[in-house]
Every structure is written in structure tokens, then in C-alpha cells.
Design a binder for these strands. Structure first.
Length: 569
RNA sequence: CGGGGCAUGGCGCAGUCUGGUAGCGCAUCUGCUUUGGGAGCAGAGGGUCGCAGGUUCAAAUCCUGCUGCCCCGACCA
């Protein structure tokens, strides 16, 4: 591609709309432009990267035996009513009506449509297992789109759905997809971890997320430094402390704590460390009323864990101020488990505390020197908190570290959730009708582009790994407007490299060298060739990798082989 | 959805408090010079100041309402 014929606009200044680095660089490099909140144009340079990602995904999906299909973006409401998600999905589902007033959705995912395909096309267990996938545009009306294409409302996703006659086949299909994902993210040179995950709204049993590790990631992940355990923080178990609880050593006393409503205030006011204070949260109970969840003052409630308790309403809701008053006789901020009129669940760490401080269920009063068993009944024990950095790994090996991640893939064993609701069956060996089992496997294609930039950049711009680079090589001739020999040599080199199947961005613009270098670095083309009059006289051009700081002189007649070796290695 | 902020040529911003002919840098176009790290000089084009009302002799500026966008929290590829 000749850059003189490529209408690219790079900027020195960062657009004000962008907060994270990948978003800033994508805008500055002219890869994307915003059209509306969470909705973007992909310009030529950006789309080339999207296509690279798609190509790798396609190759690995095909290698794994999956079959590519294409499903509609606009789907009839009937399918969603049949699965029940017309009512479950909420405002993230974009609904619309056609001219005849019939209802449709813009697909945020395709379980319904693919299950409809399966029930119509699949008749016999002999046709199973089968895995259909597509690479297609999704729309999710996110509450808060942000970070450019990292969390857009419209985005490109690879979604795959497998159909099975039995559990063993579903597990095998899941394992095959897991292996394919490891291969593709490896080929994309992403630094990622697969982590145990909550199945969330999509439902089903086993589930893993593929998380690209990055400071800017929106997800917190707990990874063990002792083995390969990794889990989304929502799911990582917090083990009960190993040592037994200390014996009471202080008397119970009431202390006046005017306006000390938060643990931070209380801890500072009483000069008691946060981990000696008890946090009591009242949430709505499953059968009405409230339930008390008790945590150590320095720990955070984990909503996913809490709403798994039978007694707790799901989804988790904090109790209203009125309900708090009814159960505790006090305002929020002074609630404690002593003489509380509701059931109490204590996190393992909270249960391990002795001589602690907690609310006295009376305004401006707390209790000090409180002990389980002595001053109040032993509560029910539960795992209620988020794990923190340094917690022991649940596998028993090593300690957990909390890192940030960008979720680029998610795989599920769905079971019969959709096939049952939509009556997708095949005949088994004995001629009996059986409901198929399903797996589903997503990848955020456009999100990967941003995630790769998050992991590969420097102060000058993007640094593409070879497999994702929009062009392999940038060819920069110096002073080609004045020097006919340079122009001739550059044209020739461009032709030779292109003929060899190498994708070259040929910067034949009438621009100063500094401009060309700066643009090449911002765009992140991994391999750079510079052709100047000086080198030309010696029969060579200069090579430099985007990550390198020094040039290498390469004889002009061996450039093709040299670049090919670089790309192969 | 709750909280905070912004809206002025393509981009980044000043001007708004204290009303009085809309400005700067970058980018773009023309010419000359320049050419190994975002050039210099000279000239040029481009803005109903987010929208709608209102106050005023006069509104980017003051008032009211609306819209869009960004950021922080609960959800997700």
C-alpha cells in the first residue's frame, strides 16, 4: 500500500474523549472514529487488524472442526420469548419494531437463533456432536460504554455453539474449544490466563474466562503464585483461617462514637485497626425480611457469593433504611450482630475474630471487646468476602495475587438451558427423543485489538506483534522527491517485497523523515526499512524492529530473504 | 441507573466570573526555501460558539428547559 494514496490522519494530540491508552492510540493512529457512544467506525488501518484477528480465529476454529455459519443481527422476538430471555434480559437488549409493528431484537448473542437452527437441521444422534460458529456484529445496549472499542455497544464477536447427545460429549467439546482458545490467543501473542468464572446470566455449569492481563483491565482476577490456579475474584474461594480463634481477653464495653458511621472513621476514632472491627451489612432476605452479613472491617463483600446463600435474595439488594431500623433499632452505621433481630451469617475471617469492635444497634454507640459465643451466639459461617492479595490459594499451594484482566473470551457448558426451552431434540440409538446438550464459546474480536495494544505499546505508539500487524513492513525512502535513484530503488524494493507476499506500507509521501518515522512508530508497524541516498550508494538499506534501538544495514539484494526470516521467526 | 464534569473551525484549547466586531496552537490549501526524527517564511480557506426558549439596545458570555458526550460506582465478549 502506498501511503500517498491512503487518507490517513495521525495526530500528535490526544483526543479528549479517550481515557485509556489503547483508545487514545487507536484514535491517534486513525484506526477508529466514534460515531455515537460505544459505536465506532473502523477505518482501513484498524480494520486490517480486525481481519488479522478474525483470520487466526477462523483457522483455529476450523482446525478444531467447527463449522462457520452466519446468523442474522436482527432476530424475531418470538425466539426470545420462547427461551424466556425476552423478559429476563432487561434493557441491555435492544428491541425494535418493524413497519408492521412486529417486534425484533438486535442480537446481543445468538443462543436462540442457533438453537432454532439445531432443532430444524439436526434429527439424529449420528449428526452429533456439531459446533457452529460465526464472526458477526453484536449489539448490547450497555449502561455505560467506555474505553473505546474495549466496551462498545456494537462490537464484533466470534460466537460458537456446540450440540451434543450426552454429558461426556459436551465435556469433550468444551475441552476442544478450550484448547483452540489457548492456541489462538497464543498465536496472537497475548499474555493471558484462563480463569474460573461465574456463569452469570447466560447460565449453565462449567465456565472459564480468558483474561488478557493488563493494568487497565476491568476485571479483578486472583492468581496463585504456587500453581496454575486462577479465578475471577467473584468466584475465588476465601479459605477459613488455619489457626483457631483466640480466647476472649477483654471485657465487653459500650463506647460512644458520635457520627462514626464507616469502618474507616471508626477505626481512626478508636485507634483500633480495621481488621479488629466488624462490618455488619443488612441485605434483603429471600423470603422477605433481612439477613445480616458480617465481615471483617478490612474485607469487601462478594455479591456473587452472598446471593448464593439460600436465605439471601438474588440478585443481592442492600436492605432499605426502614428495614435496617426495624431489625436493629438504629440507623445504618451503628449496626452490629449483638441482639440483632434477623439471621446472621459471618464470613470465616469475621468468625475468627476475638475482642472485636462492632455496632451497638444504637445511634452513636459501638461495642468493644466483643466475643463470639460469650457475648452473642455463634453465627452461621460462610464464605462472603472477596479474596485479597496474599490470601492462601484454595488449592493449598502458594498465595493469591490480585491482578487486572481484560476478558477476551468466555466458554461455557450450557447443558439443556436453551435446548429444553426451545425443544431441540434428536433421536438416540433406541429411537427415543432426547434433548441435546449445548456448549457456547465467545470471543470479543474487536476487544482483542484494544487488549493487544494495552499489552504492546510504548511512549511513541503501538507495537504490533507480527501476527496482528496491519502491515508487516513499513518502507521509508528518504528525500525521494529530490533523489531519482532513491525513488527508483524504493519503488523496486516495494515491488519485490510485495511480490514475495510481504505486506508493505510504502511511505512515498512528500514528507520529512521525522514525520515518516513518527507515523511509522505510532502505527506500530513491527519491521521498518529505511532507504536513503547514503545507504543506496553502498547497496544497502537500514532495518530496525519497532522494539529495537539500533539499525542494521542489509544488502539490498537480500532484503526479501531477511524479512521473510524475521517474519518466520 | 446514581454521582461528577464537559460541549467554541477537523483535533487540542483560551475567551464565559465582569455581556460590546470569535481568538490561539495543530491540521488543511498555495508559493518559495528546506529534507536522517513531527521544518521556516509569506499568504489562504474553514466556526448558525450543542439545541430551543427567555432577559437585554446588544448574548459564546446571564436565566430556564432539553440533548449529546466523557469520567467514577453496580453488569459483560
Amino acid at each position: 500500500m502506498r501511503l500517498s494514496q491512503y487518507p490517513i490522519n495521525t495526530t500528535k494530540e490526544t483526543p479528549a474523549e479517550a481515557e485509556v491508552l489503547s483508545h487514545q492510540l487507536m484514535l491517534r493512529a486513525g484506526m477508529i472514529r466514534r460515531v455515537a457512544a460505544g459505536i465506532y467506525d473502523w477505518l482501513p488501518m484498524g480494520l486490517r487488524v480486525v481481519r488479522r484477528v478474525e483470520q487466526i480465529i477462523r483457522e483455529e476454529m476450523n482446525r478444531a472442526g467447527a463449522l462457520e455459519i452466519l446468523m442474522p443481527a436482527v432476530q424475531p422476538a418470538e425466539l426470545w420469548q420462547e427461551s424466556g430471555r425476552w423478559h429476563e434480559y432487561g434493557p441491555e437488549l435492544l428491541r425494535l419494531k418493524d413497519r408492521h409493528d412486529r417486534e425484533f431484537v438486535v442480537g446481543p448473542t445468538h443462543e436462540e437463533v442457533v438453537t432454532d437452527i439445531a432443532r430444524r437441521e439436526l434429527r439424529s444422534y449420528r449428526q452429533l456432536p456439531v459446533n457452529f460458529y460465526q464472526i458477526q456484529t453484536k449489539f448490547r445496549d450497555e449502561v455505560r460504554p467506555r474505553f473505546g472499542v474495549m466496551r462498545g455497544r456494537e462490537f464484533i464477536m466470534k460466537d460458537a455453539y456446540s450440540f451434543h447427545a450426552d454429558e461426556a460429549s459436551m465435556a469433550a467439546g468444551y475441552a476442544a474449544m478450550r484448547a483452540a482458545y489457548v492456541r489462538m490467543f497464543g498465536r496472537m501473542q497475548l499474555n493471558f490466563r484462563s480463569v474460573q468464572a461465574d456463569t452469570g446470566a447466560i447460565g449453565g455449569s462449567a465456565s472459564e474466562e480468558f483474561q488478557v492481563l493488563a493494568e487497565s483491565g476491568e476485571d479483578a482476577i486472583a492468581v496463585s503464585d504456587g500453581d496454575d490456579f486462577a479465578a475471577n475474584i467473584e468466584l475465588a474461594p476465601a479459605a477459613a483461617p488455619a489457626q483457631a480463634r483466640a480466647a476472649p481477653s477483654q471485657p465487653l464495653e459500650r463506647v460512644t462514637t458520635p457520627h462514626m458511621k464507616t469502618i474507616a472513621d471508626l477505626s481512626a476514632f478508636l485507634a483500633v485497626p480495621r481488621e479488629r472491627c466488624l462490618k455488619t451489612l443488612l441485605v434483603d432476605g429471600a423470603g422477605g425480611g433481612v439477613v445480616a452479613l458480617v465481615l471483617r472491617g478490612d474485607h469487601e463483600l462478594n455479591a456473587v457469593k452472598a446471593q448464593k446463600l439460600q436465605a439471601v435474595a438474588s440478585p443481592l439488594r442492600m436492605a432499605s433504611a426502614a428495614a435496617v431500623r426495624a431489625a436493629s433499632g438504629s440507623e445504618p452505621g451503628f449496626v452490629g450482630p449483638v441482639d440483632l433481630k434477623c439471621s446472621v451469617y459471618a464470613d470465616h475471617a469475621a468468625l475468627n475474630m476475638a475482642d472485636f469492635v462492632c455496632g451497638a444497634n444504637a445511634p452513636d454507640l459501638h461495642l468493644r471487646g466483643v466475643n463470639w459465643g460469650r457475648d452473642l451466639p455463634e453465627p452461621a459461617a460462610a464464605d462472603l468476602r472477596n479474596v485479597v492479595d496474599g490470601d492462601p490459594s484454595p488449592t493449598g499451594k502458594g498465595r493469591l495475587r490480585i491482578v487486572r484482566g481484560i476478558e477476551v473470551g468466555h466458554i461455557f457448558q450450557l447443558g439443556r438451558k436453551y435446548s429444553q426451552a426451545m425443544n431441540a431434540t434428536v433421536l438416540d440409538e433406541s429411537g427415543q427423543s432426547v434433548t441435546m446438550l449445548m456448549g457456547c464459546y465467545g470471543i470479543g474480536v474487536t476487544r482483542i485489538v484494544a487488549a493487544s495494544i494495552e499489552q504492546n505499546h510504548d511512549e511513541r505508539g503501538i507495537i504490533w506483534p507480527d501476527p496482528l500487524a496491519p502491515f508487516h513492513v513499513v518502507l521509508i525512502p528518504l528525500n525521494l522527491q529530490k533523489s531519482a535513484p532513491v525513488r527508483a530503488a524504493a519503488d523496486a524494493l516495494y515491488a519485490v517485497l510485495t511480490a514475495a507476499g510481504i505486506e508493505v506500507l510504502y511511505d512515498d509521501r512528500d514528507a520529512r523523515p521525522g514525520v515518516k518515522f513518527a507515523d511509522a512508530e505510532l502505527l506500530g508497524i513491527p519491521h521498518r526499512l529505511v532507504l536513503g541516498e547514503r545507504g543506496l550508494q553502498a547497496g544497502s538499506c537500514e532495518y530496525r524492529h519497532r522494539r529495537a534501538t539500533d539499525n542494521e544495514d542489509i544488502p539490498l539484494d537480500s532484503v526479501t530473504g531477511f524479512i521473510k526470516a524475521k517474519l518466520a521467526g
